[in-house]
Design a protein around this nucleic acid. Structure first.
Length: 359
DNA sequence: AAATCGGGGGC
DNA sequence: GCCCCAGATTT
């Protein structure tokens, strides 16, 4: 169909003559580094991911070096980026490539997409950028650009929408230059056909754009998911004894898997911690009658995508490690520096930020 | 098909 | 506050 060719030709023309977006991984041909950049950028803004990419490629220049790194060290480098399963899968796949592929990144779409943490988007990106294979990327930019140019109101987060947009993206893909095309459509979505306030007046596709023709640019793309939000109340007890602090590694099935935290008491209701209440908690839970309560913080709030965390930190010095907590991990402050924590915990750990939170 | 997984930036 | 971001995985 003529409209497809027009779209592709105009987009590639824009890419070759006007696209001046710069990113550290642009033009990279090493599949390992492309993979790193793509995983870092999943659901993450380019500006947020940039320094993480630089840190990872400089600390682990090869997949073998990443595969050989201790888990904890890699999580520390990922700290603050969010969606920590990405980090877990990154390590798993690095080791898969070393152990099953002899350290050589697989070079077919089928093999690439089979790796953990690599879905259709990331596989298409690696296949096209590293190996020039004809697979179209379908990310948030692509949904938006295609939905607008072709005036499609099928929800992008439906099964039907995913199939439809994937098929369309592969229709308009420049099969001779799939890598360049994929780069072009994402850069175009990020700089011209933006989510808010798209630059239609300078858009090279404006006259052919069907959403613009129908005045529907800011109604597209359509999403139909409604996300449920909930509020959780966390009280973290920083328990110190014998120059060590109790640290707990968070497990699966909840936020911040594999990150560390202090002794957590969670409740669905807001609880007011007075000094008397803390003393009683120490007696009841720890069998400790003489706790030295150093501080009770104010309430910190963090907005996640589908939950609000209200957090309070209570720091207590104990004369000895309480018997009920013998099996927990007690670490020195210097050892704590090597562990990855949620942002909320790091906020409290930073003395400069902490001061403003105290009563 | 729906629910979950973080954190930051723009409005 | 709400929406979106170079999505993937699990149930």
């Amino acid at each position: 169909m003529m409209l497809y060719k027009k779209f592709t030709a105009s987009l590639m023309e824009w890419h070759l003559t006007q696209n001046n977006r710069q990113m550290p991984w642009k033009g990279e041909k090493d599949p390992y580094k492309i993979w790193l950049s793509e995983v870092i950028l999943q659901q993450t803004r380019v500006e947020q991911g940039r320094t993480y990419y630089e840190n990872f490629t400089s600390k682990y220049p090869t997949v073998a070096q990443l595969a050989a790194a201790p888990d904890e060290q890699v999580f520390k480098l990922w700290e603050g980026l969010g969606y920590y399963n990405r980090c877990k899968n990154l390590l798993f796949t690095a080791r898969t490539i070393v152990n099953q592929y002899n350290g050589v990144f697989p070079d077919t779409y089928t093999d690439i997409v089979a790796l953990k943490g690599i879905g259709p988007y990331t596989a298409a990106a690696i296949a096209s950028f590293a190996f020039n294979l004809p697979y179209a990327v379908v990310d948030g930019n692509v949904y938006r650009v295609l939905a607008r140019f072709f005036n499609i109101d099928t929800p992008t987060d439906s099964t039907e929408g995913k199939a439809l947009f994937t098929e369309l993206a592969n229709e308009v893909l420049d099969k001779k230059m799939p890598g360049a095309f994929n780069q072009a459509i994402m850069d175009f979505g990020a700089t011209i056909c933006k989510p808010m306030a798209p630059a239609c007046s300078v858009c090279p596709l404006q006259t052919a754009c069907n959403a613009r023709k129908h005045g529907r640019v800011n109604m597209l793309p359509v999403k139909n998911k409604i996300l449920q939000k909930k509020t959780r109340h966390f009280t973290w007890f920083i328990l110190n004894a014998q120059n060590k602090t109790l640290i707990h590694k968070r497990g699966a099935g909840d936020i911040w898997e594999n990150l560390h935290e202090f002794y957590l008491v969670e409740s669905t209701e807001k609880t007011t911690w007075t000094r008397a209440a803390v003393e009683q908690w120490c007696r009841d839970q720890l069998g400790e009658s003489a706790p030295d309560i150093l501080s009770i913080s104010g309430i910190l709030s963090q907005q996640l995508t589908h939950q609000t965390i209200k957090a309070q930190f209570i720091e207590v010095n104990l004369p000895q490690i309480p018997a009920p907590l013998k099996e927990f991990n007690w670490v020195s402050r210097s050892r704590m520096q090597e562990l990855a924590f949620p942002r909320l915990v790091n906020m409290w750990l930073d003395p400069k930020k902490r001061d403003s939170l105290l009563f």
